[in-house]
Design a protein around this nucleic acid. Structure first.
Length: 111
DNA sequence: CTCGTGACTCCCG
DNA sequence: TCGGGAGCCACGA
């Protein structure tokens, strides 16, 4: 049967989102909402979460460069937090004492 | 179909 | 600054 435009839109979102994540430069970070917006779904931050859960490993996405809008790692300690922090620090990203990333300095701003 | 869940975000008090 | 509630979207039981 034919695909609907909705199906195409969903597929399109997933592709765009993955491509967007792959475009994040080393040493920079992006927010869930930012990626969703760039992929065409301004309110789809949670879709990005699902995408990472389902494809981060399979598609080798730089998932560690995705943080929440406060510049904080959203993963719980013992469930990826330490790993992500290490990966980011390894790329030169610094954290404040309260565990936040200075987005004025590290947020990726595609042009 | 309804309900629960999640690496989100926004709004209020 | 902090916590709760609601909106958001997709997926699986």
């Amino acid at each position: 049967m034919n695909r609907t435009k909705i199906d195409e839109a969903d597929k399109d979102f997933s592709q765009r989102a993955k491509n967007t994540i792959k475009r994040i430069p080393k040493g920079k970070v992006a927010t869930y909402g930012q990626i969703a917006a760039l992929a065409g779904s301004p309110r789809g931050a949670r879709r990005v979460v699902w995408l990472l859960h389902s494809s981060s490993l399979k598609d080798k996405l730089p998932w560690h460069r995705v943080v929440n809008k406060q510049g904080e790692i959203s993963l719980a300690r013992g469930r990826g937090y330490e790993i992500q922090k290490q990966l980011l620090m390894g790329e030169g990203v610094t954290f404040s004492l309260d565990g936040r990333i200075d987005l004025d300095r590290f947020l990726w701003r595609p042009r």
